[in-house]
Design a protein around this nucleic acid. Structure first.
Lengths: 359, 359
DNA sequence: TTGTATGCGTTATCAT
DNA sequence: ATGATAACGCATACAA
C-alpha cells in the first residue's frame, strides 16, 4: 500500500495504451478503440474498465504516435508577414475561429516579408506533415509551394494575389476600394487630391492606385504626377511602425509641395495615421486644413483623433473564409479551386472635411 | 526512360529514408546518420551518394517519425489572452525571436481569458508532447499546469504573477510603475489626480493602483475615494476594443464628477486612449483641460494625437526573457526556478500639461 | 466482441 | 564504417 504512493518524478515514463490495457486487464487494441472514439463496438463493461484505468493512470494520448500511424495531421500552417500588424492579427483570429470550430489547430509563422524565412517555414510545416497552408506569400518564386501541392498539400493564398500558382484564393477588390475612397473625397468637394503610398512594389498597392486614377478620370479631374507621393525608402522589417514612420515622411513631402492638395488618400491606415501626425507637427489641422482618408479600417483607426475615415477591408472575414476554403478542399477529394474577391465599403468618420458645406 | 517521368499525383507516397537508401545503394541506418547530421562517421563517398539520392528523390524528413523515436519536441507552447492585443503580440515577437534563434518553433494559443479554453489548449499542447510552455495564465486553478510539471513539462509564467505555482516567472513592477506615473503628474503640478481603471480583478491592476496610492501618500495628497474611477462592467472577450470602449465610458464618469481632476492616470494605454477620445467628444482638450497618462507603452500610443505620455512596460523583452528562461530550464536538468521582475520607465510625450509653467 | 500482430518513419543498439 | 533490427505510441487488418 505504501509503494503505491510512489513519488512521481520528472523522469516518470509516459503512460501508454499498453499500461492502460494492463491496468484494465484487456488488450491495447481494445483500449485504442475506446479511447480514440473510434466507434468500434466494445462491451460496455470493458469500456468502463478502460476509462477508469485511463483516469486512474492519468493517461493522455500521444498525438505523435497517432499522427504517425494515421498519417493525418489536425494542424494547418499559416504564414503571414507579421503578427504585430493589426491587419494580420485580425486575419489570424478569423482563421483560428474557423479552424477551431472544425477541430483544427494552427501553426503560425511570421515571415517578416523575407522570402528566405518564408521558405524555411514552408519547409518546416511540410516536415510537420501539415496537409494545408494558408499564406500571404511574399516570395516571387512559388516553386516551393507548387512542390508541396504536388505532394498533396493544399494551399490557399490571400492578401497577395498572384496568378503564378493554381489554388483557391481570397482576394480583395483594391481597385474598387481606391475608387470609393477617392469618389468620396470628390463628393465632399475635393479636387486637389494626392495619393500617398509606400513603394508600389506590391500588386495591392498598384491596384489601389489604379482606383485612385479611375476616380479622377471618371470625374474629369486631371491626373497630376506630382500628386502621387511615393516614398523611396526600401521596406524594412514589416512592423506596424514602419508604415507609420513612412507616413510621417510622406507628410513632409506633402508640405514641400508648392500647390498643396486639399485631401490625401493614403495607401493604408497605418500610413494615414503617420501622415496625420506628420501634418499635425507642422501645425496643419486634419481635417480643417487638409483631409485624410485611409484604407484597411484597422481597429486603431477609430481610436485616433480625428477618427479616420477609411475603406473597410474585412480582415477577419478574409481569414475565416481562407481557412474555410482550405479545410473544405482538404476534406474533399473532388474539390475545385475557388477564388473569392471581397468587396470594400466606406467607413465615414471625421478625417475628411466637406468643402461644399459653408462653415 | 519514359516511365521515369511518371506524373506525380496527389496520392504519391511520401519518400522515406528507405527509398533514399535504395536509390543510394546503402542502408536506411546510414541514410539516417547522414541526413540527421548525427555526426556519426560515414565514408565521404557514401555520404555524397546519399545526399544526391535524397536530392534526386526530393526527400523530406518526417518530423513526426523523428519525434516519436526521439521523444523530444522542438516546439514550445505559448498561451496568451489574445493576439489582437498589441501588448501581447509584442510579447509573442520576443518569444519567437528567442525560440527561433535556438531552433525552436512556437505553438500559439489564444485563451481569450477563458479558463476552459486555456485548459483545453494546455491539454492539447501536452498531447503534442511539448516539453515547455510559457503562459499568461488566467485560470484560478493551476492544477493542470502542476500536473504537466509532474510529467516533466517546464512552465514559465509571465504577465499574471501568481504564487500558486512553483516555476520560473517574469514579472513587472507595477507598483513602481504606478508610482512613477503619478509622481510625474505631481511634478507637473497636478494634485487633483484620478485613477481610471477596468475592474480591479487582476493583481496587476491592483498593484498599479497601489502605486497610485503610494505616490499620493508620499506627497501628502489625500486619497479621495471619488477619484478612483472603476468601471463595473464585466470583462468581455479580451480584444483591443474592449479596453478602448471601457475608456470611453470612464470618460463620461469623469465628466460626471462635480470636482473634476486636472489629470487622470489610466490603468493601461488602451484605456487611456479611450478616455482621450471620450473627453474629446465632450469638447475637453487633452492636455490643455485635462491631462492623461497611460500605462504599458504600446505602439499605438505614440501614434495618437496627442502622443500619449506613459509608463513603459518592456513587452518584447518580457517575451524574450520568458522564452529564454524556459529553454534554459528545458535543457538543464539541474536548473533552478528564477523570478525576474522587469522595471518600468517613464515615456514623456505630450498628453500631460505642465501646470507650473505659465502659458 | 476481443486479441495478435504489423507498420507508420525515424533513430539507436548491436553486430559485423 | 555499415547494416539488420528493434523500438517509439498508436490504430488497424486479420484472426479468433
Amino acid at each position: 500500500m505504501v509503494n503505491q504512493m510512489k513519488e512521481q518524478t520528472n523522469k516518470t515514463k509516459k503512460v501508454t495504451i499498453y499500461d492502460v490495457a494492463a491496468e484494465a486487464g484487456t488488450s491495447a487494441a481494445t483500449v485504442s478503440r475506446v479511447l480514440s472514439n473510434s466507434g468500434y463496438p466494445v462491451k460496455e463493461e470493458v469500456r468502463q474498465r478502460i476509462i477508469d484505468a485511463a483516469k486512474k493512470l492519468n493517461y493522455t494520448p500521444n498525438m505523435v504516435g497517432r499522427m504517425l500511424k494515421k498519417n493525418i495531421s489536425m494542424d494547418i500552417g499559416v504564414i503571414i508577414p507579421t503578427i504585430s500588424n493589426p491587419f494580420y492579427s485580425q486575419i489570424i483570429l478569423g482563421i483560428e475561429q474557423e479552424a477551431r470550430q472544425r477541430g483544427y489547430n494552427i501553426l503560425l509563422c511570421n515571415s517578416f516579408r523575407d522570402s528566405e524565412t518564408e521558405r524555411k517555414y514552408i519547409n518546416s510545416l511540410y516536415q510537420k506533415q501539415v496537409r494545408g497552408i494558408v499564406i500571404s506569400s511574399i516570395g516571387e518564386n512559388h516553386d516551393y509551394l507548387k512542390e508541396l501541392q504536388a505532394n498533396g498539400v493544399r494551399i490557399v493564398v490571400f492578401d497577395q494575389w498572384t496568378d503564378d500558382i493554381k489554388c483557391s484564393k481570397v482576394g480583395f477588390n483594391y481597385i474598387k476600394g481606391g475608387l470609393m475612397a477617392v469618389e468620396h473625397l470628390i463628393s465632399m468637394g475635393h479636387r486637389k487630391i494626392a495619393f500617398a503610398t509606400s513603394p508600389l512594389t506590391r500588386r495591392s498597392r498598384r491596384e489601389t492606385m489604379e482606383g485612385f486614377r479611375l476616380a479622377l478620370l471618371k470625374h474629369g479631374i486631371p491626373f497630376e504626377e506630382d500628386y502621387v507621393i511615393e516614398s523611396e525608402s526600401e521596406e524594412e522589417q514589416e512592423n506596424g511602425t514602419y508604415e507609420f514612420e513612412n507616413g510621417k515622411k510622406l507628410a513632409v513631402k506633402i508640405m514641400d509641395l508648392k500647390d498643396k492638395p486639399t485631401a490625401v488618400f493614403a495607401v493604408n491606415d497605418m500610413t494615414a495615421i503617420g501622415i496625420i501626425q506628420g501634418l499635425t507637427n507642422y501645425g496643419v489641422r486634419v481635417p480643417e486644413d487638409i483631409s485624410v482618408i485611409g484604407f484597411d479600417n484597422i481597429e486603431i483607426s477609430s481610436m485616433i483623433n480625428p477618427p479616420l475615415t477609411t475603406v473597410n477591408q474585412p480582415s477577419f472575414e478574409t481569414g475565416r473564409l481562407a481557412c474555410k476554403l482550405l479545410l473544405d478542399s482538404m476534406n474533399d477529394n473532388g474539390y475545385e479551386d475557388v477564388s473569392v474577391v471581397l468587396e470594400p465599403s466606406l467607413i465615414i468618420r471625421k478625417s475628411v472635411r466637406n468643402l461644399l458645406q459653408k462653415t
